[in-house]
Amino acid sequence: MNQCLQENWVFRLTTEGDAQAEALFELEDLLKRRLRRAFRSNAKVDDAFVDDVVQDSIVAILESITQFQGRSKFTTWATTIAIRIAITEMRRMRWKDTSLEQLLERSTEISKTIAVPQSSEIDFEKKQLVETMHRVIDEQLTEKQKLVLNAELQGMPQEEIGRRLGSNRNAIYKLVHDARKRLKKGMIDAGYTIDDLSFFQGAE
């Protein structure tokens, strides 16, 4: 990778003058083309959407430019930021009319989301596995962890769960990670192995 070229982007974007205006123009143009290409098949992504995302992206890129470590092309790094901003906005629009209460209306408790199979056909071992999960969830997870894990299993993105709980995506990830670790440890303590869990995963 041409280190000089990458540093040149940073230098031009952070040094006031004509070169900065030119670099901003080039970057905007590049991000617009790339966003259009990335979301070509999405009818909701029109020019106005792309323009807004690019404006927000430029602000975010300039704010975090010191975090660019030169391990990729500058433009690739800038594109990752623009893509995240675009998809975050799409998720916000897609979920804007759904509250956590509405989402969890049918399965208010995580134990209802992962219900014990009722059919008599179902094999005993599988039933036992789900019952053990219920017990471990009940004993080891906090109420907030149960709520967040339930919402995630029902398809709400972590970003959106965070928005509704006055939190953010990273904090929600950490909360769910801790919940997964507790549940995994609980299952292992109850006598299951990782192989057992993978086996059930593949079993009908």
């Binding site: 789900v130 999960m133 995506r169 990273n170 990830y173 990670h177 993978s198 995963q201």
Partner: peptide, 20 residues
């Protein structure tokens, strides 16, 4: 949902990178 949770568990490790 049970399958999804089991998959999550089988991919869980102590130290994970987060979205940041």
């Amino acid at each position: 949902k049970v399958q999804a949770l089991l998959e999550m568990l089988s991919l869980t490790s102590d130290n994970e990178a987060d979205c940041g």
